[in-house]
Design a binder for these strands. Structure first.
Lengths: 327, 327
DNA sequence: CTGAAAGCGCTTACAG
DNA sequence: CTGAAAGCGCTTACAG
């Protein structure tokens, strides 16, 4: 037996569907008697409104879409948690979807008519690609997209400032021979961090080299293991994210290199695991970033206008034992 | 300017909306000419179908809802990842929602008409409460619900078998004085693990005591710190989940108790962090659990019938350095 | 306060 | 192969 519809309720309560709708939505112009009969019928039938139909009628879904490049690892776990928290607080549902760099952008279109707005984090897409794939009338908030945001509000992580803080710290500790484990080449955060690293290293007059990773722990571990094979000629490693820095740490431990005495290590993000392994890093307050993105989107939706705005999410340095022994 | 609708496309292509619909859905009975004109109009207008309207018409959303008690921590991160992976593979969208024990069950109703089916993990609810809150006609797959599943397919984690394996391991190592850090009292997994623990400890003729936690790392740490204050009179700790076991580990380290020499520690779940800290635990293969739940639901949806079935997700013991030094 | 009707943007028998 | 029309389950002017 299919679920009851508003017509079933109307029939049972002996009123029109219009009255049922009004009663259900708590409008003023409904007699106490009608209201009671409707309530009774709803109870008896176990009626639950059909959110899809309601949305179509209202042109409002009360859901927001979240499109992330991936769901693997603590970074995304944290950002989703922040988003869920804020969405729940505001009474919105979260429609989650991943946009794998290799799978095309069609999911963006699939979201039209299911959500009132979108959060998009696509560090591998530029504004044009995004613009082409997004329904024109759908409000969007971007997180860390490359280049201009095409008129969409956007939140950026302060990559340059974060890297600069780490590098100051490391240089201040006397480190002079750097390795940077870079993230995916097409990822805007990875690029910005890499650039900032090079600039800082140059400014400080330090030697440096760059090895490639893909943001995974394994890639960090492999990269550093390979470096060590060639003989250790560096005294500091800066990973483009925490995962890779942690991988690097494993590789050093496996090779019995003393951290931080022989080699200092720092990462970026401050995922929960970073605290556990004592990794010096740049704290992004990831969950908060997720909250902000949702808040920004919903504020826009509810004021019927998404003011164009760029927001900076400034990170801060967190010093732990991979660079500085506790005293 | 609002997004174009199918009518706009029809007008521009000079055909009926019916033809546009047919062309868009790749039906056979459309002339090449019509098809081409529609394609052209779609391109010009940047038309994207309204998924909500489509769903209403088809009575099919191609989305599945996921309701979890929380999103905090690696357990949920992993399960969501597995779900996302499988849903993506099958072409479904994921609607994610948390069902906090304290917030009531209204979100379950809110999902009617937005999803074709639901995965519900609500270890604090019983079958009656769930039954009352769920739309009657909505297919549901339960994960680790207490008691009978009210006719819904259900997946259970083999808590008893898992606990039994850990306890055998610990007893086999010569441990005789146990502490169990229990999870939330109203959580079915916590209850099952606690019971299995008591039974195993009794059977082995071991001393044991139970202290309370809430599945958070902090609670595990606090519980053990308190125990240590009273003097250490135990040689093994079994945490109802990994987070609490890891908290316990921190507390022991802080008190300079040797692990595993003086006290062995084991947890449950095998979250990614467990490997990092070398925690002996029960591997649940969490992501796989999420995948299975989605697969089971979608299989049911697509065969138009959800056969009632209970599935057991059997865990396995993973021995690491918190119980046994590597040799 | 209430009901009949139109409409939200689609799909799909039904006729032609 | 094509179009006019009804319908999916709601909401909301419009009349009364």
């Amino acid at each position: 037996m299919p679920d009851a519809t508003i017509r079933d309720v109307a029939r049972k309560a002996n009123v029109s569907v219009a009255s049922v709708s009004r009663a259900l939505n708590g409008l003023e112009n409904v007699s106490d008697d009608t209201r009671a009969r409707v309530a009774e019928a709803v109870r008896e039938l176990g009626y639950v409104p059909h959110a899809g139909a309601r949305s179509l009628s209202l042109a409002r879904t009360h859901a927001v879409g979240v499109v992330l490049p991936d769901l693997h690892g603590e970074f995304f776990s944290e950002i989703v948690r922040g988003m869920d928290r804020e969405a729940g607080r505001r009474g919105y549902l979260l429609l989650l979807s991943t946009l794998h760099p290799k799978h095309g952008t069609s999911v963006l279109g699939a979201l039209r008519g299911r959500v009132d707005g979108l959060i998009v984090m696509a560090p591998h897409l530029d504004a044009d690609e995004l613009g082409a794939a997004l329904p024109k009338a759908l409000p969007v908030v971007l997180i860390n997209t490359r280049g201009i945001s095409g008129g969409h509000p956007a939140i950026h992580i302060g990559n340059a400032a974060g890297v600069s803080a780490v590098m100051d710290h490391l240089v201040g500790l006397g480190r002079r021979r750097f390795v940077h484990i870079a993230g995916p080449k097409d990822n805007i955060d990875a690029q910005e961090r890499c650039e900032a690293f090079c600039e800082a290293a140059r400014k400080a007059g330090c030697e440096f080299r760059i090895v490639n990773g893909d943001f995974s722990e394994e890639s960090g571990e492999a990269a550093v293991a390979e470096l060590l094979d060639q003989g250790r000629d560096f005294d500091a490693i800066f990973g483009s994210n925490d995962n890779m820095a942690i991988g690097a740490l494993q590789a050093l431990r496996a090779a019995s290199v003393a951290v931080p005495e022989d080699v200092a290590i720092a990462g970026f993000d401050d995922i929960p695991l970073a605290r556990h392994v004592g990794l010096t890093t740049v704290r992004v307050r990831i969950a908060e970033l997720g909250e902000r993105a949702i808040a920004c989107l919903i504020d826009g939706l509810e004021s019927k206008q998404l003011d164009y705005a760029e927001e900076n999410h400034e990170p801060e340095l967190v010093v732990r034992s991979t660079t500085q022994r506790e005293s």
